[in-house]
C-alpha cells in the first residue's frame, strides 16, 4: 500500500507532472505520498484509511540549473516563487 495514490485525490494539476528538462526529461516527482496505517479492531475512532505527507520539490532538484523558465512578476508573487519548478501547491484537507 506504500505510496499508492488514490485516483480521486490527485494533488497536482497535470502540467506539474509533465516531463521536465530540469529532471533530465523525466517526470517531475509527485509532491504528496500516501500510506495506510494499521487499524486495530480495538481502535476507538473511525479509521482514517489514507494518510498523506508532503514531499516538496526542494527534496529532488539538487543544485538549481541555470536558465529555468520563470513566471511573469505578478504570477511569481501570487505563487511565492519565480520558478515553476519550485511551485508547491497545498490543497487544504
Amino acid at each position: 500500500m506504500e505510496n499508492q495514490q488514490p485516483a480521486a485525490k490527485a494533488p497536482l494539476p497535470a502540467s506539474s507532472n509533465a516531463p521536465n528538462a530540469a529532471y533530465g526529461g523525466h517526470h517531475a516527482p509527485t509532491q504528496f505520498k500516501y500510506y495506510t496505517p494499521y487499524y486495530s479492531p480495538l481502535d476507538p475512532c473511525p479509521p482514517m484509511t489514507v494518510k498523506r505527507y508532503n514531499t516538496p520539490p526542494n527534496l529532488y532538484l539538487g543544485y538549481q540549473p541555470m536558465n529555468l523558465p520563470q513566471y511573469r512578476p505578478e504570477e511569481a508573487l501570487r505563487r511565492g516563487t519565480l520558478w515553476p519548478i519550485f511551485y508547491a501547491p497545498y490543497p487544504p484537507r
Binding site: N58, R78, A88, P89
Partner: peptide
C-alpha cells in the same frame, strides 16, 4: 494552519509564506 481555516484570503497569504519555506530550504541545501 491552512487546514485550520476556511478563509480563502487568509489561506492565500499562508500559501505564499509556505512556498517561501520551500525556496529557502532549496537555497540552504545549495
Amino acid at each position: 494552519l491552512i487546514d485550520l481555516t476556511d478563509d480563502v484570503d487568509l489561506q492565500d497569504s499562508l500559501k505564499f509564506l509556505r512556498e517561501r519555506e520551500v525556496v529557502h530550504s532549496q537555497r540552504f541545501r545549495e
